[in-house]
Nucleic acid binder design. Structure first.
Lengths: 210, 210
DNA sequence: TAGATTGTTAATCGATTAACAATC
DNA sequence: TAGATTGTTAATCGATTAACAATC
């Protein structure tokens, strides 16, 4: 698999490709052309071929793409086969919602533990995920190297927690606090889910014209 | 306030401007230059001046921008002063998390009601927000024109619910189901919060190099 | 084989950056 | 006033689209 410099725009489209290919696969579609896929995804055929060409040659002239195998290729590109692991920091409503409802496994992740400060929660399990005291974070991460820390703690604890995750060497932080994390001089990647920004964007879009 | 064709890239930066200006304001900073703001936000000074010029002239030569008044301008641009209202569809973990923890008011929204199918929830309140049966959605929306429907229902109910919201004339749908909603021939705007896409992006970023 | 569709190179379009006159 | 910094126009860069030879 060749890796050129892949632009951010392309990277952000990859999960969408994966999602659409999964849909197609489940609908029993076996092959698809770039133009048909483009139609479904609201992209041009050119763009799809251009995007995919960053990673290899997955199609066949005169035929198109095999849905199942392209889906597998995209999964591979996305790192879904790397057996990533995740832990959740903060088991409030949002943390709990993610543990109970979000399918980490569908993204190739295994959710191995959660951490909280609330004594009432510690020692219990949510959907089979054990909840440990935050003090044990470093020890846990030492014994269980972890790909991603999911940050669902209150804002006041966010930067501190992020720091500790970085120090312990997680590869990524999935940030649900509405803060800009200040993670410097590390190669830990931060992916933000800024609810507030998203709502404000929607606010703008429905407020058009003064 | 002039409105040119504002690119999507610019729109997505507006909430970030607002967030940073709020931070600055809270820190007591009264004025800031495009270059200083750029430094803080990791943008070029040019870009900031270019972005803002889509909406008007908010700065002063030799001085820069007044933080408080620029913040107000951005709030205005984002439609935060329009007294928008929102309702939540689906009071599961995620819906509840949003009701209890998300500050709709900080985005200029008033959260007026929630809807669910669970008889045990109906008639109760969560953080002061009343929960009504979904059957009453249309009647409610008729009597209480609402800006945005927040979609936190199970995937199976998502498209149906979206359709009903559109039919009832909401201006926007804030979509937390991991589905591509099929909302056609309407001017209802859909803003997606795709957790799954976000996690896969992170997966890609931490999986670099084969 | 003929038709379809790829991967890729070239052309276009749009967004970001640089430069600078205007002016506080 | 002199220095700083804007808003805007021009230059550059990057991403999207179009075109087409290669080939299944």
């Amino acid at each position: 698999m060749k890796r050129q410099k892949v632009s951010n725009a392309v990277i952000r489209r990859l999960p969408r490709y994966y999602r659409h290919l999964t849909d197609l696969s489940q609908t029993g579609v076996q092959r698809i052309s770039s133009s048909a896929l483009g139609m479904a995804m609201n992209l041009t055929a050119s763009q799809i071929r251009q995007d995919l060409s960053c990673f290899g040659e997955f199609g066949q002239q005169g035929y198109g793409y095999n849905v199942e195998s392209l889906r597998n290729e995209v999964a591979e590109i996305l790192g879904m086969t790397r057996a990533h692991t995740a832990i959740i920091l903060g088991v409030g409503n949002l943390g709990r919602a993610l543990i109970e409802n979000f399918h980490f496994d569908r993204g190739g992740f295994r959710l191995t533990a959660a951490f909280d400060v609330n004594p009432a929660l510690i020692g219990t399990q949510v959907s089979g995920v054990p909840i440990y005291p935050v003090e044990e974070l470093e020890v846990y991460l030492k014994e269980n190297p972890t790909s991603v820390g999911v940050l669902t703690v209150p804002q006041s604890a966010a930067n501190d927690m992020a720091q500790r995750l970085v120090q312990s060497g997680v590869k990524g932080i999935w940030n649900f606090t509405n803060l800009e994390l200040h993670v410097e001089d590390s190669n830990t990647v931060v992916e933000d889910v800024h609810f507030a920004d998203s709502l404000l964007t929607l606010s703008y879009l429905i407020s058009e014209a003064p």
